[in-house]
Design a protein around this nucleic acid. Structure first.
Lengths: 143, 143, 143, 143
DNA sequence: GTGGTCTAGACCACC
DNA sequence: GTGGTCTAGACCACT
C-alpha cells in the first residue's frame, strides 16, 4: 500500500504532492491497475492533512483517468504508467540504485542527486521532450 | 546567466520554481558566489510572470542567506551550495549523463527517469540525509 | 490578544512595525508559545492596512521561526523570546516603570525617554551584544 | 562629531535612520545649535551608503527646521531639542545608565531593554503625550 | 534603472 | 473563513 509523505513547508500544495507520489508509484510499477489507494481516513491518520485535501487529489486523478472512486469501496487504479525498463530487476534500475548509493556515499544530499539528474536530463536535450525542467508529472505526456 | 523556466499549470507556485531552479544551479556550480541573478524585469520579460512574484522568490532566498538584494544594483549570490562530486567533469556526473542517455534511448520519459531516481533515493534510506556541511536552513527536499 | 498600532508617516514600513511589535510582545512575555495572532482580517479592521501587508509580516516571522501560519486555522506563536528579568513583577521591571514615571513627570517626551535609554545602551558598550542563547537569526537591533 | 551607524537589514530606510540618530543626539544635547553635521562625503566614507541618501536625510531635516544647509560650508544645527533632565550629569541620566548596566548584566539584550522601556512607556499612558512644549514636528514616535 | 513597499482584488488551498 | 498566490500598478529608496 502506498504511503504518502507530505512535506508541509515545501511550498508545494499537499494535493499536488499526493498526485505526484501516486504517479511515481504507477510509473515504477509499485502500484498496478486494480490496486486500491489508501482511504482518505487512512491518509489523514498517516499525514495529518485534511480529508478534503486527499479527496481533492483523488478527484484530480479520477479526471485524468488514473483512478476510479467507487463509493463505499474505495479508490482504485485504472491505468498503468509503467514502462519497460523501470522494473525492479531491470539493468537501468540496478545501475541507478548503485549510482545513487555511490553519490550518497560521496556526501551528496538528496537535493544534490536530483539536481545532478535534472542537469543531465536538460543536457540530453529538451527537444526530445516537451517538458520544461522540473516538469515531471505533467497531466498528459503519456497515453 | 540563469534562465528560469516557469511551468504554469504544474500546481507548483511560480516563486517556488524560481527558488528551486536557483538552488539547483547553485548545487551544480552553474551559479557561483558573486554572480548576479537576472533582474526582476529580465525575468518578467522572459517568463511573463509578475515582477512581484520574482521579488518574492528573491526575498525568500535572501532570508535563507543564498542571495543579497542590493537596491539599485541587482541581486547577487552570497553562498555556494556546490558539492564536490557535482563538477562538470566528475565521474559521478559522467556516469549519470550516460545513464540518462540510455534511459531516454530505452524510451523512458523525463518523469520516468525522475521516478526511478526518486525510488532509488528512497530505497537508499532517507535517514542519511542530515548534517551535511552547508546544509543550514533547508526546508524542502522532495515535494 | 496583541493589538498592533501602525504609525503611517514614520518612514518605517508597516510590515516591519508589525514584526517589531510582535517581537516586543514575545520578549515581554505578553505573547507566549501557542498563542494565536490576530487574523489578517482582524488586523486590517483595526489598522486599515492591506491584508497582504499583514501576511507579509507573518510570513517573515514564520521564516525566522517565530510563528507558524496554519491555513484555515490562523497564525500561532512557536517560539519564545522571553527573558528572565522581563517578568511583570521583576525588580528591573518595577524600577524602569518607576523611572519612566519620573522622567515623564519631569517633562520628558516619549522620544526623549527613548533617546536617553539608547544613549545609555550605547555608552554601556555594544560589544556585549552577541551570542545570547535563543538569538538565532536576528537581523535588526537599532534603527 | 556625530557618528551615524546604519543598520542595513533592518527594514528601516537609511535616510530615516540618519534623521532618527540626529534627533536623538539633539535631544541628548550631544549636538547643539551651530554644530556642524558631517559632510555627505564623510558619512559615505563611514557608512558606505550613497551621498544622495545622506543629502535626502539632511534635506528632510532642513524642512523640519532642524538644520540648515549652507552651500559650500556644510550642514548646521539650527534648533535644539534638548530637554532639562537629559543632561549628562542629571539624576535621571545617572539612574538610567545604572539601570541599563544592571539589565545587561542580568543577560538582557539591547532589544530586551528597549522592549522593557517601551512597555513601561505604554503602561504609563499615552494620553500624557500630546501638547508638550516643543512637540511640533512629530512624525514618528514608536514604530 | 535597480530593488522595495503597499494597495486592490481575483482566485486557490486547506480546515 | 483561514491563510496563500498572483496580478497590476503606483510610488518610494537607493546607486
Amino acid at each position: 500500500m502506498i504511503d504518502y509523505r507530505i512535506d508541509r513547508g515545501s511550498g508545494v500544495p499537499a494535493y499536488v504532492q499526493i498526485v505526484e507520489q501516486t504517479e511515481r508509484a504507477l510509473r515504477m510499477g509499485t502500484l498496478r491497475v486494480g490496486d486500491k489507494l489508501p482511504t482518505a481516513r487512512e491518509v489523514v491518520a498517516a499525514t495529518a492533512i485534511n480529508p478534503n485535501t486527499v479527496l481533492r487529489a483523488y478527484r484530480d486523478m479520477e479526471q485524468t483517468g488514473l483512478v476510479e472512486l467507487r463509493r463505499g469501496l474505495g479508490t482504485f487504479v485504472t491505468r498503468s504508467l509503467a514502462r519497460p525498463g523501470s522494473e525492479d530487476d531491470s539493468p537501468l534500475r540496478r545501475e541507478i540504485t548503485d549510482w545513487v548509493a555511490r553519490a550518497r556515499a560521496a556526501g551528496l544530499e538528496r537535493a544534490d542527486v536530483l539536481a545532478l539528474v535534472t542537469a543531465a536530463l536538460d543536457a540530453h536535450g529538451d527537444e526530445h521532450d516537451s517538458g520544461t525542467p522540473g516538469d515531471r508529472d505533467r497531466k498528459k505526456e503519456d497515453a
